Simulated scan of single mutants.
Amino acid sequence: MEDSYYRLLAQRYLEGTLTDNELEVFIHLLNEGKMDTYLKEAINAEMGITEENEAELQKTTNIRHMRNSWLKYAAAVIVLLCVFAAILINRLPSQQPIAASRVKHDAQPGGNKAVLVLANGDSIILNNASNGQIARQGSASISKVQNGLLAYKSTGADTANAMNTISTPNGGQYNIKLPDGSMVWLNSASSITFPTAFNGTTREVTITGEAYFEVAKNAAKPFIVNSGTQTVQVLGTHFNINAYQDEPGIRTTLLEGSIRLKTGSQSRVLVPGQQTLVSGNNIVLQKTTNPSVTTAWKDGLFVFDDTDLPQLMRQIARWYDVQIVYRGKPGEFAFVGEIKRDTRLTSVLKMLEASGVRFSIENKQLIIQP
Rank of each mutant, 00 (worst) to 15 (best):
Arg64Ala: 03
Asn68Ala: 01
Ser69Cys: 02
Ser69Pro: 00
Ser69Ile: 02
Ser69Tyr: 00
Trp70His: 02
Leu71Gln: 06
Leu71Met: 02
Lys72Gly: 01
Tyr73Ile: 02
Ala74Lys: 03
Ala74Glu: 04
Ala75Gly: 06
Ala75Asn: 01
Val79Ile: 01
Val79Trp: 00
Val79Gly: 02
Cys82Asn: 14
Val83Phe: 03
Val83Ile: 04
Phe84Trp: 00
Ala85Phe: 00
Ala86Cys: 04
Ile87Ala: 00
Leu88Asn: 01
Leu88Ala: 02
Asn90Met: 02
Arg91Met: 02
Leu92Thr: 04
Leu92Ile: 03
Pro93Trp: 05
Pro93Leu: 01
Gln95Trp: 03
Gln95Ile: 03
Ile98Trp: 05
Ala100Lys: 07
Val103Pro: 00
Lys104Phe: 07
Lys104Thr: 02
Lys104Pro: 03
His105Glu: 02
Asp106Trp: 02
Asp106Tyr: 05
Ala107His: 04
Gln108Ala: 15
Pro109Gln: 03
Gly111Arg: 03
Lys113Tyr: 12
Val115Arg: 14
Leu118Cys: 13
Asp122Thr: 15
Ser123Met: 15
Ser123Pro: 09
Ser123Glu: 15
Ile125Gly: 07
Ile125Pro: 07
Ile125Ala: 14
Ile125Phe: 13
Leu126Gln: 14
Asn127Leu: 03
Asn127Arg: 08
Asn127Gln: 15
Asn128Met: 10
Ala129Glu: 07
Ser130Gln: 08
Ser130Trp: 02
Gly132Arg: 04
Gly132Ser: 10
Ala135Lys: 12
Arg136Ala: 09
Arg136Met: 10
Gln137Tyr: 10
Gly138Lys: 07
Gly138Leu: 06
Ala140Trp: 06
Ala140Gln: 09
Ile142Pro: 07
Gln146Asn: 11
Asn147Arg: 12
Leu149Asp: 06
Leu149Trp: 12
Ser154Pro: 09
Ser154Ile: 14
Gly156Cys: 07
Gly156Ala: 14
Ala157Trp: 12
Asp158Gln: 09
Asp158Pro: 12
Ala160Cys: 02
Ala162Trp: 05
Asn164Ser: 14
Asn164Val: 12
Thr165Ser: 11
Thr165Gly: 09
Thr168Pro: 09
Pro169Trp: 10
Pro169Phe: 12
Asn170Leu: 10
Asn170Ile: 05
Gly171His: 08
Gln173His: 05
Gln173Asp: 11
Ile176Val: 15
Ile176Ser: 11
Lys177Trp: 08
Leu178Cys: 12
Pro179Glu: 11
Pro179Cys: 08
Gly181Trp: 09
Met183Ile: 15
Trp185Glu: 13
Trp185Tyr: 15
Leu186Ala: 09
Asn187Arg: 05
Asn187Asp: 07
Asn187Leu: 05
Ala189Cys: 08
Pro195Ala: 13
Pro195Val: 10
Thr196Gly: 11
Phe198Gln: 12
Thr201Ala: 15
Thr201Leu: 10
Arg203Ile: 13
Glu204Cys: 08
